[in-house]
């Protein structure tokens, strides 16, 4: 069962299409990364899915409720961490949480319990009665996360949860997201932090007004760059290009100084044959290593390919 499903979800502001025919499904309990450059339409997408703004066309189901028809139910069952924490600075941490817990239909006793639970969990209990205005950025972000969780939503939208945080605070937030995932919640995460997305997400969508590609990070790497190995040879690698090219399972090969970059389907099975062929051709192999591509490589490749295609909404 999917926690979020969209079909051709589109949002235009006047003539400008910001989200164009977005179609995807996020399974229950998964961390779904939504990556894209600034102005790509990520926040608009989050706002649509959290029933804050209406789509221009298309449909979506969020937490089992139909967008546009059951918006109050959606709001009741999702948690939203907005880009800016948006906390009441003159109120204490506990007052902030208590207020939102009550808005999410928790009775006073449960609101107190939940506020305490998350304040303790995020290490803010000792500062519970201090005004939020005196909190550091990291503390505010943690408090905003606690606010999004008070009513135990099944789906959480986290918009740039670690943006602007120092490494320690960012790490705490990441660890907390991992913990949420183990609780079976679905997390829709927008971030610019690609190593973070790689670490946390089961599936990512690279997005720029429209979806450029969706898949598991490892699958996207393989799809875009294939599997590959780097073979360092004693001396120039150029003379061995044709030896590698002649092998039927090699898709591509390039020489870079003393390194031979080879793309193939299944390195585990095909590496021995490749190495044997090179040795037979006289290559003195120093070492063989898998060729790693980061999510950043995937992202940059996709974003560069996906020219901004703004179309007038018809």
């Amino acid at each position: 069962m999917n926690a979020i499903e969209t079909c051709d979800l589109t949002r235009a502001f006047g003539e400008r299409v910001v989200v164009d025919r977005l179609t995807f499904a996020a399974p229950r309990g998964a961390v779904f990364g939504f990556l894209g450059p600034n102005g790509a339409g990520k926040t608009t997408t989050v706002r649509m899915l959290a029933a804050l703004i209406a789509p221009t066309s298309g449909s979506a189901m969020v937490a089992g409720y139909r967008l546009g028809e059951e918006d109050q139910d959606i709001r009741r069952n999702v948690g939203l961490l907005t880009e800016s924490p948006g906390l009441y600075e003159r109120l204490s941490a506990r007052q902030n949480l208590f207020f939102f817990a009550r808005l999410y239909d928790l009775d006073a006793a449960r609101a107190e319990t939940q506020a305490e639970r998350y304040l303790r969990m995020l290490g803010l209990w000792d500062r519970r009665d201090d005004p939020v205005g005196s909190f550091s950025k990291g503390m505010r972000q943690k408090l905003a996360i606690a606010r999004a969780l008070l009513h135990e939503p099944s789906v959480m939208f986290l918009d740039e949860p670690t943006a602007g945080l120092d490494p320690e605070a960012a790490r705490t937030v990441r660890e907390f997201i991992k913990e949420l995932r183990t609780e079976g919640r679905t997390i829709f995460l927008t971030t610019h932090n690609l190593p973070e997305a790689d670490e946390l997400c089961d599936t990512i969508a690279v997005f720029r007004t429209r979806v450029l590609r969706i898949g598991a990070p490892a699958t996207l790497r393989a799809e875009l760059f294939g599997n590959g190995v780097r073979i360092r040879i004693a001396g120039d690698a150029e003379p061995f290009l044709n030896v590698a090219r002649a092998l039927p399972f090699v898709h591509a090969v390039a020489a870079d100084g003393d390194v031979l970059n080879v793309s193939l389907d299944n390195p585990d099975e095909q590496n021995p044959s490749l190495v044997r062929a090179l040795i037979e051709a006289g290559a003195a192999i120093r070492y063989v290593e898998p060729r790693e591509h980061t999510l950043e490589d995937v992202y940059l490749q996709l974003v560069r390919e996906g020219e901004p295609q703004e179309r007038a909404y018809a």
């Binding site: 804050l52 709001r75 907005t82 948006g86 009441y88 808005l103 606010r147």
Partner: peptide, 14 residues
């Protein structure tokens, strides 16, 4: 001004 409106509007409040 304080950007507190979005979390408030995201809550189930009419």
């Amino acid at each position: 001004m304080r950007r507190t409106l979005e979390p408030l509007l995201a809550a189930p409040v009419r």
